[in-house]
């Protein structure tokens, strides 16, 4: 678990040389937040000019955005604002930076790792890989991805979305003169890194360029303001919902209780089901879509046979056809095929 790191500014820290197995030299980091249980972490990373990393994959999901300079990833040149989402086990091509670059690098589920390989790991979910020039190729959208919403003047660009947990990675900006007079907390952890500019929060004061926070769920933050504007990368680890209020002295436990109370008020039947003694176990209620038996490739469950709605052939013990029609089917006690008429 990562502790609450807020506020923190990487400009106040010096770089350390990253010396881990299989990583090329010329990689320096400032640790922003760290999960001592798994090694997952977020770091500002300086790649020296001439940096070169062999093709390979990490054991963990990884995200990266270029802050300054350029990184060559295979044939692609990634410039300032380029974002990459790399699933665990996804073999990246050679990465080089002839003139060096600064990046925000996030290892989500395990410690930083690099296994030299030109092949994806068999368990890699390769279809999830994506990268984009977030500055040039995505327009800003209103920040009202959830309701109740942030005030106008807080805009976002969605970079990654997990359909299961609804975790998000996004750029957000505050326009000059932005302010929002409420206190917020969420049911999810939230992370932010200021790529440029300064914002202010009532609990923590100014968050400048290089400013960072890792905030566990249910912790108050806000009111909010930004005099000259800012642009930042944000992430949540599950669904983002804004619980607004105006009590600066409420505690995380009180906030969490309020969230539960809101479920009780809004979805009393769901609350009763989820929190009743019989169903309240550590793994949470079962989602049958994730656990039910599925046909898969089980022999006999063919999917090639099509039906016109009147006639079809299939493996189980009945068949349909028009009266008087002639049809064929296979018997399971051999490979014989025969034709017969119906009464």
């Amino acid at each position: 678990m990562r502790p609450h790191i807020e506020p923190f500014c990487d400009r106040d820290e010096g770089f350390k040389h990253l010396r881990l197995p299989n990583f090329a030299s010329g990689m320096h980091y400032k640790m922003l937040s760290f999960d001592g249980d798994t090694g997952a972490c977020s770091m500002t990373v300086q790649f020296d000019g001439g940096y070169r990393r062999t093709p390979g994959f990490a054991w963990t999901e990884m995200e990266m955005i270029i802050i300054e300079g350029e990184m060559q990833v295979g044939e692609k040149t990634c410039r300032k604002g380029h974002y990459l989402f790399v699933p665990a086990g996804y073999a990246m091509p050679e990465m080089t930076s002839p003139k060096g670059c600064l990046a925000l690098v996030m290892y989500n589920t395990g410690e930083p790792s690099h296994e030299e390989s030109t092949q994806h790991h068999p368990l890699a979910q390769v279809d999830l890989y994506h990268d984009v020039d977030s500055y040039m190729d995505i327009p800003w959208a209103m920040g009202n991805v959830t309701k109740p919403s942030v005030a106008a003047g807080c805009l976002i660009k969605l970079l990654n979305f997990n359909p299961m947990s609804q975790a998000m990675t996004f750029l957000y900006c505050m326009t000059p003169g932005f302010y929002q007079d409420n206190i917020s907390y969420h049911d999810c952890a939230e992370e932010g890194y200021h790529l440029w500019g300064t914002s202010w929060m009532m609990q923590f004061g100014d968050v400048p360029t290089g400013g960072y926070f890792w905030r566990p769920a249910y912790i108050n933050h806000g009111a909010f303001a930004s005099e000259y504007g800012c642009i930042a990368l944000g992430r949540t680890d599950s669904k983002l919902f804004n619980h607004f209020h105006y009590n600066p002295w409420s505690t995380p436990v009180q906030n969490a209780d309020r969230s539960a109370a809101r479920i009780y008020q809004r979805d009393p039947l769901l609350y009763k089901w989820a929190f009743s003694e019989d169903h309240n176990h550590p793994h949470g209620p079962e989602d049958f879509e994730q656990t039910m038996l599925r046909r898969g490739d089980e022999e006999g469950h063919d999917t090639e046979h099509k039906s016109d709605g009147h006639t079809h052939d299939h493996w189980h013990g009945h068949h349909h056809h028009a009266d008087g029609s002639e049809h064929q089917h296979h018997h399971h006690d051999g490979d014989s095929t025969h034709t017969h008429d119906h009464d």
Partner: peptide, 28 residues
């Protein structure tokens, strides 16, 4: 915190375990 997906089991070398320990102390 976990993103609840996308992790492949593997052995963590002793030097990496040492690095993790050092980062935990630095974070404290």
């Amino acid at each position: 915190m976990s993103f609840k997906d996308l992790f492949i089991e593997h052995d963590v070398p002793p030097e990496v375990q040492e690095w993790i320990k050092g980062e935990v102390e630095a974070q404290e």
